[in-house]
Each structure stands twice: as C-alpha cells, then as structure tokens.
Design a protein around this nucleic acid. Structure first.
Lengths: 342, 342
DNA sequence: GGCTTTAACGCAATCGATTGCGTTAACTTA
DNA sequence: TAAGTTAACGCAATCGATTGCGTTAAAGCC
C-alpha cells in the first residue's frame, strides 16, 4: 500500500488533477450524478476517501444558496440571569443539537441580550448564515416575533400554543400543567396557596397564572394578592419573594412555582421560617430538571418533555424550510408526585 | 423622504448598480480603502445603510479564507448525562458567547457524543467551518487531544493546568480548591470524610482526589476505600453513591463532592438516613452554581469563576489564532463557606 | 462508409464577496 | 501643447464548489 502523500488534497481541483478528470466530473461523481458511469464514480470516490478529501461545505453552501445551519437564540431579558442558572435550557439544547445533527445541520448559538435582537436576526438570517431560527424564550413584548415575521424568516418559538397566534410554536401545556398542579395542592387539603411566576408579560407565566386563578375559583377560593408574586426566574429572586410572602401571608400552606429552580430556592426561606416541607407548606415546581427527583425533599413538579421538545422544534422548523406546512404543537405535561407534595 | 423601495438590495452588485459604480468600488468604499475619496465612501456607505445592505459574511469569509467562527464541543462520555443536568455548562457557555460576540466571531455548537469526535473535528475544522475549537471536557483517554494536535487545529481545553501538558488549557485550580475544602472539613473537626468524584480517569477528579488524599495524610488520617466513590456527575449516581457509602461507613461525618449537583443530591440520602446537615454530616460541593447559595441548607462549595473562565478560553484561543504565543491559565478558586459546612 | 444517436465529460457561468493591476481622465509642469 | 503624474475607478481572477449546455468520440444503423 503506497500512500504517496505528495501534497494534501484540499479542493476538488486537486482531486480532479489527481484523477485526470475535470472538476465538474469530480463534483458529479461525488454526488452520484447519472451522467457519470458507476465505474468512474467509484474510482473517484475511492480516491477521495484515500486522500481524506471532504467537500468544503461553505463553498458548497454559497453556491447552493443555503447555509445548512440553524441559529438558536435566547432572547434573555436584560438583567435576567435565568439563562445561566437554569438547567432547563441545557436539556432543550440537547434535543435541538441531537436532532439537527441527524439532519446534517449545524447549530449556531447566540446567547444574546435583548438589545442585540435586531442585530442577531439581521446578522444571522439576512446574511444567509442561517436558514432559520429557533427562539427559546419569547421577548416580553413580542417585538422580536413581529420583526421576524416582517423579515419573512422561518422560525419556531418555544412556548405554549395560543389559539390566535400567527407564528409557530412548540411548547408544553402551560395552562394544563399549572391547573393539575394547583388542583393537586387543593386536593391535598391546602387552602392558602402561593404563586410565584416570572415576568407577568411572559406568556408562560401568564397562562400558568390564569390556571392558578381558575383552579382557585373552581374551588371557591378567593385570590389574595399577598400570595402572588411575579419576579425573575432565578433562585435569588425566588428566595426573596418567598421570604416576603411568608411575612405578608403567614397562613401560607402551599406554593406553586413556575420553575424547579425557583421551587428549590423556596425551600430555604421556608425552613428558616420554621416551616417543614411538605407538612406545613407543600411545594410544586415546574420543568422536572434532573435535580428535582434527587433533592431533599424530592420535588413534586410538572414534567415537561424538554429534550423531546427540542427535537420537535427542529423537526417543525425543517418542515417549514421545505415549504411543507407545519403546525404548532402542544406537548403533554405530567404531574410528578414526589415528597414535597405527595 | 422618498424611500423608493423598488427592489431589495441583497448583493454588492445591486448596491453598485444603484450607486452607478463598480462592485470593486463598493467593496473598497465599505472597507474604507484609501484609493476611494472620502466623499464617495460616505455616499456609498450612506446608500448601504439606507437600503439595509449587509455584506454577505459567508461569501466574504470564503474569499478571505477564514471562517470567523469558533466551534465549541462537549465530548460527553457515553451514558453520562452531566451535560444536560449541570448548570455549570451554561455558565461557561455564557462567558464564551459574550466574549466571542465582542470579537465578532460566531459560535458553532456541538453537543457531541464521544463517538462523534473524529467526525466533529474533521467536519468543523478541516472543512474550514471553524477557525478553532473550544473543548469543554477532556476525553477520558485524551484520544481527542491527540487527534487535534495531529491535525494542527488550534484549540483550548477547559481543565486544570498540568505541568507537562503539551496543549493549552484554562481551568480552575482543582487541586488547590479541593485541598482547601477538605482542610476546611478537617478544621471543623470532621474525621470521617467521604469523597465523591467523577470518573477516575478524569483529570479534574484525579487532581481533587489527590488533594483529598494529601489533606488526609497531612492530618495523619488513613484513607478508607469505603468512603471513596468514583461515579458519574449526575444526581442519580451521586445519590446512589451516598446511600451505599452510608451503609459501608456509618461513622461518616463529612462529604466532599466534585460538583454542586452531586452535593445537592447527597442531601436526600443523608436526611433519609436521619443525618442532619451540617450537624451530623458536613457537605462541601464544587462549582458554586447559582442554586448553591439558595438551597437549604445553603451549600458550602469551591467557587470557580466559570463565566470568566469561558471568556478567558476565548481570549486565549484568539491569541493562538493570531499566531501570538498563548499560555495555559489556572484561574483562582475560592472557598464559599455556607451553612452546609460553616 | 457516411450519418445519426448517445454516453461521457469538459467549458464556463455562477454564488457574493476581495484585490492586484491596468486604464482613464484630469491635472501639473516645462 | 505635449509629456509626465496622479487620483479615481473598473476589469478580471480568485475563494471552492455546482450545473446548463456544448463537445467529443464511440457505437449503432442502413
């Protein structure tokens, strides 16, 4: 076996030289075009393998007017640090990454601050660096979605599906999940149920809050503003919120939090106030992050199939890109009963 | 103001037409070349802005033989799910992303399984889709690093700096951090200190284990195999490890864990066994994830400046790419004394 | 053998930029 | 006014691929 490695084969031209044919023939041979006899195809393919030749994807994409890349953006509100504190995002990224790879797409990541939105959109899609966008959190005022729609950029948003929405989203059943959780608290005999959510303008928080209200109403319980807090999806803010809530509403006997990270952070002020979980205060979170089942007490929570959700987002976006009609999808959620509210 | 939007300006040729000059002139005007008088430069730049023209980065990069992109790979060992369970990774990604943006680089992400390593390397760098690589966890057997070195691909690894290493890495002082932690446990009067780490072949775990051994030795304590477990960086495995350890070593009065997620997962089996934290068993973790300060009891831990670490990795890689000499960096760590071991 | 058919492959334009070099016209100088 | 200088800009090659169309030569047919 004489692997005469005279010079590295970097381009099709190199390979064409070596094979004694033209670049066109190499291109067609590698892509299996009919006009090249199988014998020649195999010969050239073999040569390419031998010299570890790989098509330059970027040149190919330029020629083919595509990018074979999907950009993922996290439009994190300014000041929010949920992004770097919540494993939720890692799980969804795992699903997105795996699914993109099976389709041969690259993943361009942008952990952008709110300010950078317009720039990000233009820079990624108008530059043709990405074929489409995956948006992992709604902008609070939906400016971004409007911008994306105007720019005619294919995109899929993570979030609950609303009846009248003009864009496509994939997300868990926020309303249903929260309803199950609050009803479970009510069924456990709890009467003073607190709510801790993210920013009020977030659609997810909004839906979960509505579910909370509806569940209380159906149980003939009145709303009590002292037991309702809209804050930020971070442990710090959640902790502060619970501390304040305990002061304002000492009879609190249950807590529904819009994320597991917030729920876990609630344990500390509760214990410091002498309340046992779940005996004195039952707690239910949201997401079912890996730690939820393995903390103490283990956390009851609404499980979202987030990894699967990431994969579905990709599938949906690719359908959009291929011009097939795609539809929003509401993924089922599941109440995980654990020790914090058995 | 007559914004006659006849047709969208997508390419330099469009813009050149509009301005009545050649493509070359537009190119030079936009890049501020001296041979174009300032008057013309400003005129063309203004026109470009007016029509929201943006240079096609991919074409530009092809021409300039660069990619302006850095790829981040997570060589997760098969079966390990740390990737999608540990906020550690999110923090480091935040630093990487922010720093890359300030330098105008794109971020290509690959959450690859071990199998895909060779493919990933070839596909990203040999295809010239990325100028360099950031590696977020060492392969257990360092095969990958060898492959990268052979392929002459610029890369920077996250991890502790070893005296004789041939490549460049950025990481916290694993040995020093662990030493501080175990010494703090000893100073608190603990005598039966357990160790829970990741895979034994992981350099970080190895260094922390050596620090643990050295600290015990210096305190004239013998090693006890029943109090040492090498497992996986996930809450499930950590929990199982602690349960087993409590059976085998009932006198356990302290626990040092190689990640906060493992430490938090240790709380549950400890409590179930009737041990209070920190009264009966003190616990120290590693990383200082956001939740650590806000759980109950709040977690003592070794803080790594992970966000900053991500930024340093990028800076180091960019230095490498510019041909400047770059050096490995050991970032300082800090013992955060909280309630789990005050 | 001459003509048509067709298999196999090459030429050259193209994707959207950059850049060395050549060209044009205005300006300077003798 | 003719020759030389220089400012301003265009031509065309180039990065590494793809592809419509044209060309060549062998094969088929009468």
């Amino acid at each position: 076996m004489t692997t005469g490695s005279s010079k590295p084969i970097k381009t099709m031209a190199d390979l064409a030289n070596l094979a004694g044919v033209s670049v066109s023939t190499v291109s067609r041979a590698l892509s299996g075009h009919v006009s090249i006899p199988e014998i020649t195809q195999r010969k050239i393919q073999k040569l390419a393998r031998k010299h570890h030749y790989r098509i330059n994807t970027r040149a190919q994409n330029l020629r083919l007017q595509r990018s074979n890349t999907i950009a993922v953006v996290f439009p994190q509100a300014q000041g929010s640090r949920r992004l770097t504190s919540d494993p939720f995002y890692l799980q969804i990224m795992g699903g997105i990454s795996d699914e993109l790879r099976t389709h041969g797409y690259d993943l361009l990541l942008s952990l952008s601050q709110e300010d950078d939105w317009r720039y990000t959109i233009q820079s990624y899609v108008l530059d043709k660096r990405a074929d489409g966008l995956l948006v992992l959190e709604r902008d609070t005022n939906e400016q971004v979605i409007t911008a994306l729609e105007q720019a005619a950029i294919p995109f899929v948003v993570w979030g609950p599906v609303l009846p009248e929405q003009s864009y496509i989203s994939v997300g868990g059943d926020s309303y249903g999940g929260a309803k199950m959780a609050v009803e479970h608290l009510l069924n456990s005999g709890r009467r003073h149920i607190g709510f801790i959510g993210g920013d009020q303008t977030m659609i997810e928080t909004h839906l979960r809050y509505r579910a909370y209200c509806d569940a209380l109403k159906e149980a003939d319980r009145a709303l009590d503003a002292t037991k309702i807090t809209f804050t930020d999806y971070t442990p710090e803010r959640a902790k502060a919120a619970v501390t304040a809530m305990l002061k304002a509403a000492p009879k609190l006997d249950a807590l529904f939090c819009c994320s597991d990270v917030m729920a876990l952070a609630a344990f500390d002020p509760l214990r410091q106030a002498g309340r046992d979980v779940p005996e004195d205060v039952a707690v239910i979170g949201y997401d079912d992050i890996p730690l939820a089942a393995h903390c103490h007490p283990s956390l009851s929570t609404v499980r979202q199939e987030v990894y699967e959700g990431g994969r579905v987002m990709v599938q949906t976006l690719l359908q959009l890109l291929q011009g097939e009609g795609a539809t929003s999808q509401m993924l089922p959620v599941q109440l995980m009963r654990r020790d914090s509210c058995p």
